[in-house]
Amino acid sequence: MQGVADFLSLNGPDNVGKTTQLRRLTGLWNGFQLLGAVHEHDPEPWARVAANDYATWWFETSTTAELTEMLQASHAKRVAARAAGRIGLLDRGLPMLLAVAAATCVIKDGLTVREALATVTDLAGSRTAPAETSVLLLPSRDLERSYAITSAREGRPWTGVYPAYQKTLHAVLLHQAGRGTYAAVVDCEDRSPDDVHAEVLDLIGDHLPVSSLKDGSP
């Protein structure tokens, strides 16, 4: 993996451990700035659509163009919050946001994964995006196993359209991984958070000022 850019994103489906790993990275080096998720930097539009039936808006009434633009606009505000000279840590970077839009597009518009990714990529356009090193955390490289692992961690059954969306999202992420969309892919199956943390550090550690890193041991 080449040198870490101005932003480092951890990506993956729900319950794979993104938030846990981001918090651990934040504590390792004061050059990291935890920027979190897009809705934290652009709360008004997300609160507006959530005020009624959020799931209906997301999966039925919004268009793919509207959702893609909203995700992009919120992402732009998030990256703008990075302080000069620091590496921003992102909970779901731009490739993952496009995966989310594509998975939703499959559900709403009946497209294939390949067609949906092409659609949202075209909608995203060629606007300049800041340099981002994106790492994908996969529960498993097997689609059914990947979904089973993360759904079991939810603690309660997913209902409505959400199971179909989650399965589709796993399929989109695996498709992206196969295309080399992410700078690195970490297979998390049968591995502890400590093991995953160690691999993430191995992937990025050579490209950070080692003297500034704190002890990364658990």
Score class of each variant (00 low, 15 high):
E40H: 12
G27F: 02
L97P: 04
D6R: 10
G216P: 07
R127L: 14
H75Q: 08
N52K: 14
I87N: 02
S134L: 05
A103T: 10
S126Q: 14
E144C: 01
P43I: 13
M96P: 04
G216N: 03
R179T: 08
L94K: 11
L173G: 08
H197Y: 03
A73I: 03
L137Q: 05
V172F: 13
L174D: 07
H175F: 14
P163E: 09
L123S: 13
G160E: 05
R141W: 05
L111M: 12
Q72H: 15
A152S: 13
L28V: 02
V79H: 13
E60W: 10
E199V: 10
A55L: 12
L138M: 05
R48A: 15
P130W: 01
V172A: 12
A183K: 12
V210Q: 12
S212R: 13
D6S: 13
L94S: 13
R141F: 09
E69K: 15
A177W: 07
L169E: 12
L71Q: 13
A177D: 15
A50E: 08
K77W: 04
F59Q: 04
P157S: 05
R114I: 13
P45H: 05
L89F: 02
K18R: 00
A198R: 06
S217E: 09
W158G: 07
H75R: 15
L89P: 02
L35D: 00
A55G: 06
V16R: 01
A51N: 03
P193Y: 10
I149V: 02
P193M: 09
D206H: 06
S217N: 10
D91C: 05
A198P: 01
R127Y: 13
K167G: 12
L25H: 00
G88S: 07
G205E: 02
A129C: 10
V161L: 14
E60C: 09
G110A: 04
T68W: 04
G17N: 00
D202S: 04
T128K: 15
T64H: 01
E60F: 07
R86G: 12
A84H: 14
D14E: 11
E154L: 10
V113N: 03
A131W: 05
A171N: 08
A129T: 14
A164R: 15
G110W: 03
S151W: 03
G160R: 05
G155L: 02
L137A: 04
R156Y: 12
L123H: 13
A84I: 11
R127D: 15
V186P: 09
G85T: 08
A65G: 08
S146I: 00
S62Q: 05
L98I: 08
V49I: 15
V16T: 02
S151N: 06
A102D: 10
P139L: 03
A80C: 10
L90R: 10
T150R: 08
Y165P: 05
Y162E: 15
K214R: 15
E189Y: 09
R179H: 09
A51S: 10
H39Y: 11
V210M: 06
V200P: 00
Q21W: 00
D194C: 07
V185Y: 12
